[in-house]
Simulated scan of single mutants.
Amino acid sequence: MSTGNGSADPQTTTARAVAAATEAARELGVEVTEPRVLYEAFSVVVHLAPAPLVARVPTVLPAVPSWNLDLLTARQRNELDVTAWLAEQGVPVAGPSSLVPREPVRGDGFSITYWRYLTPLPDLEPDYAPKPEAVAELHAHLRGYPGDLPFLTTFTEFVPEALRVLESRPDLLRPEDVDRARREWAVLAPVVGSRERFEAEFPGVDLQPVHGDAPSYNLIRAEEGTVYADFELVSIGPRERDMALTGEEAVAAYDVAAARHGLRPLDRRVLAVVENLGMLEAVSSLALVDQLPLLAEALPPMVEQWRSSEFAGGLGRHSD
């Protein structure tokens, strides 16, 4: 599976991403003399110094027929719009930069977004503990978002075709695992692929804008304060999606915080299903190992957890 941007060499891809982000920023009138990579994994994140401007360039993209740059750009517009709206409401968020138009920019096969630079705190120890109270507060803010968002599209856009890739890669995922994943997806896809089917399956479970990518961990601590970040997968969905795989203690703490904001407690049946979806998405991400080799070490523990989990999060059992 090749990269979505045409290069299989991570170093070459990073260099291209930095050059594309720099050139596009200069064309927008920003002085850039010292671009510096801050982070790279699924995206290359670049501080375009001396400007207080950060570029994020997605580089690890599914090379499957359903995926194209227009789809990525649509996601990026949603992220820019949601974070800009949150910032207008006074919510601490890593928002778009005011130095350039609030719009993804194309360059050298990439789709680039630009963000406000946040000053990192020196010698800060990583904090990987869940922050359920912060997630509940974010959900309370997001309920008011007035724009249109898709319904849980990140699963349907990626999982089925990634599993097709893995059918021919037993070095990445055992055939019996691929078989289970495909059978699970057959149970889950009709429900997560349709808002109407989801609401029929889970009556009374309200849907709203959700972060989509573990907001409990996507908090940036900077000199400007602690802010919510990385809304790349923002969509309409159940709030359970944002608390998946955080553990029962974090879920209980979320319920207490949610009550303070007038939100219902998490539905454990929905939580089991979205946790299975999250694991299935991680298993499917093995199809991206050639682009991002670190996944070969990062994903096996999740694969083991998935193997021991209840099939389809119990959805098939409840549907009998």
Rank of each mutant, 00 (worst) to 15 (best):
E248H: 14
A298N: 09
V37S: 05
L295F: 14
P170R: 07
E224T: 13
G147I: 10
F155K: 05
E304Q: 14
L277F: 03
P150Y: 06
Q305P: 15
E304F: 12
D108A: 13
E224M: 09
R307I: 03
A253I: 03
V205T: 10
A55Y: 00
E232G: 13
I220F: 05
D179I: 03
E275V: 01
T156Y: 04
E88G: 12
L72S: 11
R102T: 15
R56M: 01
W185S: 00
A84S: 15
L263M: 12
V64C: 01
R77I: 11
A244K: 10
N5F: 15
L245W: 04
L163E: 04
V251I: 10
W306L: 00
V303Q: 04
F231Q: 04
E310A: 14
L207R: 08
P293Q: 07
E34C: 11
R143L: 14
A162I: 01
R106E: 11
A298Q: 15
V159A: 00
V274P: 05
H318L: 11
S43M: 01
L80H: 06
E79Y: 04
A189D: 00
L294V: 11
N276T: 01
P190E: 01
A63R: 09
A250E: 02
E31G: 10
A8I: 02
V234T: 05
A17K: 03
V273H: 02
L294P: 08
E137Q: 13
G314I: 07
V100S: 11
T154V: 09
A222R: 13
L207P: 02
P215R: 05
T3K: 10
P35C: 13
R77M: 13
R183C: 01
L166M: 07
E40Y: 07
G316Y: 07
T33F: 06
V273E: 00
E176Y: 11
G237P: 11
A15M: 12
E157H: 15
A287P: 12
L99W: 02
Q305H: 12
A84N: 08
A287M: 03
A25I: 05
P126K: 06
L138D: 01
D123I: 03
G237Q: 02
G247P: 12
R116A: 14
Q208S: 12
D320I: 07
V57D: 02
A252L: 13
I236H: 14
T59Y: 05
A250Q: 02
T12D: 14
A87T: 05
N218R: 08
W185Y: 06
H211E: 01
D177R: 13
Q76C: 11
S97L: 00
V289C: 14
V210S: 06
L288H: 08
D177E: 13
D179S: 09
T119C: 08
V227S: 04
A229W: 01
A287E: 07
R75M: 12
E167F: 06
G204L: 05
V187H: 00
E201K: 09
T14W: 11
P300A: 03
L72W: 12
R56G: 12
A140Y: 08
L138V: 09
R239A: 11
P190N: 06
A74T: 11
T73F: 15
E137D: 10
V192A: 00
A24H: 02
